[in-house]
């Protein structure tokens, strides 16, 4: 608790206190606090709030590249919502996110559980499994593109040489396999992040808990369910929140592998916004797309934050 100078007892005869600065100590502390916060706040305003508000404002204008913006109200939102492409893009974004997150969770957990055991070559394997995540996205997805290419790709060569197929498979060009192929490539690149985060969490769970459970006769599944998962709860929530945001906003895998085709089978909202904003130069319409998506992501973040704080 802050105490002002007036509360300090001064014995009689002692030298007088220097003149007190204006304002109470509390006020001065508050002032100092704001002063110290100011650089961060300014940076936040300039780099986060201002661009964000600008993007929202642009969504209400007819802004196109190289032209001044004019306020047109909700016209862009009406235009976007009435487009069947937006509905498809939103659906694909949700499928892409849900399936990819589920797979990344399972693979990441398996990776963490395996690497948490003591065995020869563990450190090598830990580094090895990180390679997909360390690779730049462009490189990773171009490798996949080449890998799945029907004319010159390794996958088709291998399947043909093994006599399993006589004609190349169109992994990225068939509407049935395009989205699963893109998801596979994305999961391959991203699951090590889950693995590393879960591994760090696993190493913080006291081994005594497992020993006590063993004494009580718990089997492996029960240990996982009642010790590992609760022990990783916070890590899981943070990783899920971050990865959901990143996956929902993913652009590289779709753009580089299929460009949103064939026939919008892999079109997601980020690629649609890119097409509207950068390719067609209509920034107003393009901004309306993420602004429409914003409440979905916002609600998700609030829900996850709520789960985290409830435990606290």
């Amino acid at each position: 608790m802050a105490t002002g100078p007036s509360q300090v007892t001064v014995p009689a005869g002692s030298r007088p206190l220097p003149a007190a600065p204006r304002g109470t100590l509390h006020q001065r502390e508050v002032g100092l606090g704001w002063l110290l916060l100011a650089p961060v706040l300014i940076v936040m305003l300039v780099l986060v709030v201002w661009p964000f508000m600008t993007a929202v404002w642009i969504a209400f204008t007819n802004k196109s590249i190289g032209r001044e913006a004019e306020w047109i109200g909700l016209a862009n939102f009406a235009q976007v919502v009435s487009s069947p492409r937006f509905g498809r893009a939103l659906t694909n974004s949700l499928i892409f996110t849900v399936v990819a997150i589920a797979l990344k969770f399972v693979l990441g957990m398996a990776m963490a559980m395996a690497l948490n055991q003591a065995f020869f070559g563990r450190n090598f394997l830990r580094a090895y499994l990180l390679i997909p995540w360390v690779l730049p996205g462009f490189v990773a997805y171009m490798i996949w593109r080449w890998f799945l290419d029907p004319l010159q790709g390794v996958a088709n060569y291998a399947l043909t040489d093994l006599g399993l197929i006589s004609f190349p498979l169109e992994f990225l060009s068939s509407p049935a396999t395009a989205l699963p192929s893109v998801i596979a490539a994305h999961v391959w690149r991203s699951f090590p992040f889950f693995g590393v985060a879960f591994l760090a969490g696993l190493q913080n769970i006291p081994s005594e808990q497992y020993e006590a459970a063993a004494v009580d006769g718990a089997n492996g599944w029960q240990k996982f369910l009642y010790i590992t998962l609760p022990g990783l709860r916070h890590v899981i929530l943070v990783v899920l929140m971050l990865s959901t945001i990143w996956t929902f906003n993913a652009f590289e895998p779709i753009y580089l592998l299929t460009g949103g085709g064939p026939a919008d089978a892999t079109m997601v909202y980020t690629v649609l916004a890119y097409e509207m904003g950068i390719v067609n130069m209509r920034l107003g319409e393009a901004s309306a797309v993420p602004v429409l998506i914003l409440p979905v992501l916002g609600m998700f973040i609030v829900a996850v934050s709520g789960l985290m704080s409830r435990d606290d």
Partner: peptide, 19 residues
């Protein structure tokens, strides 16, 4: 049409013909 043309990029026609 060769397989894959539904998602070719700008270099697809070049690469296929040149090979």
């Amino acid at each position: 049409f060769p397989p894959g043309v539904l998602t070719w990029d700008q270099t697809g026609d070049n690469d296929a013909f040149q090979s």
